[in-house]
Design a protein around this nucleic acid. Structure first.
Lengths: 131, 131
DNA sequence: TTGCACACGTTATAGCATAACGCAATTGAT
DNA sequence: ATCAATTGCGTTATGCTATAACGTGTGCAA
């Protein structure tokens, strides 16, 4: 597998996210794409579902919003846990990965005999500029 | 400071969460408390805001739901980062804390000169029984 | 007693997400 | 070629989550 060719709607949503400074809600994306013919939330959500599946986009649970993945070359191999810092001031989101955390979480969860499917790590606060 | 005496509404919401098996949405709580006189979402949300502030309740961002804190004796000293496993099968939520993860995250974030205010760690998957 | 802080009640509205229907295009096996 | 299955798409309607804005009452301190 890998990432299939994107459909028109998927490309439009991906483009909107990629050119955005920060995260966008589905409805914000919808508004940005009205001129391209988007009329209903489902058009956005369906595209987002696929983009999430392909690993091109991340969902920020604490924001109910979406960002383009900033590790564009890691989509083939599942690159495990993704973590984010989210600045409450400027809205900037920084994606990062760390093996140590991944392994530690993995060990703790194994201790519960829990089978992980998706891990969410989001750190809200203020970035250097907005401190 | 510490935890002040709860008001009537706060106690009712706290009780509903404490006696629940798993997490509940604000609207589910509302429905459970209609017999006690609750009529509107704000009554629940206002109580939840305080209970969150007091550390008696946690919000699960990936579920838009709330759980009673299971570390009832740690509310005085802020006990740092709280993490959860959430079973997609039975809905069971397990709260846990780990200093190693906390320190590792803290170091990574300090590297960005980022000031943390709130950290969310939620692991979705299946528990031992639901594997 | 006046002013302030806080909890509360109510109505209305905003913001996020999906159900259910039907149509069109593609693919792939027979 | 043709049929069936799959996938994407468009639309309408609906449901779930959260907050804005207004007013009331109560307790307490200056």
């Amino acid at each position: 597998m890998g990432t299939p060719q994107l459909t028109k709607n998927q490309s439009l949503v991906m483009g909107a996210l990629a050119h955005s400074e920060g995260p966008m809600s589905a409805y914000t994306i919808l508004d940005k794409l009205r001129d391209q013919g988007f009329r209903a939330p489902l058009q956005v959500y369906r595209a987002l579902d696929k983009l999430l599946e392909y690993g091109l986009v991340h969902r920020l649970e604490s924001l109910n919003a979406f960002v383009a993945c900033t590790c564009p070359h890691e989509h083939e191999h599942d690159h495990g846990v993704t973590a984010f810092t989210i600045c409450e001031g400027c809205g900037q989101v920084t994606e990062f990965h760390d093996e140590a955390i991944e392994e530690r979480l993995s060990a703790l969860v194994r201790g519960q005999s829990f089978k992980t499917e998706k891990t969410t790590i989001e750190i809200r606060g203020h970035c250097k500029s907005c401190a």
